[in-house]
Amino acid sequence: MSEYKSVVVTKGRGGWGGPLTITPTDERPLVASITGGGIHPVAQRIADLTGGEVVDGFRSSAPFDKLAVAVIDCGGTARVGVYPMKKVMTVDVHATSPAGPLAQFITEQLFVSGVKPEDVTET
């Protein structure tokens, strides 16, 4: 059995939403980096502090129902909505606010943006 810890992710400068408390579980162990250029430092830090398993969503499988959190580098339209729509906690490293056709799914309970590694803290 795995021991997971919690982190709190707060919005960064110009960001929106949160704070989110993220705790991986045996059912949802993955910290997925759905970002360009490999695993983002924010995803790595969440995984390091929680004990979750970090994966590059563009290289390996990261199904919605296995995710503790999705870390994205979304410019405001697509990924910001897709993960919250599936009730997956979502951290955008860009400072976006709810917009686009999926804006209704983007809530402060599921989404936080403008996040840098220092915005991820242990509880």
């Binding site: 250029g37 580098d73 410019g75």
Partner: peptide, 26 residues
Amino acid sequence: VVRDNLLNLGHLDLKADGLTEAKLPG
């Protein structure tokens, strides 16, 4: 963030909004 998104992920958000200044970074 459009250039990075396109070159890294093949990702692009095309918007027929007629704006001359992008509302969102993507």
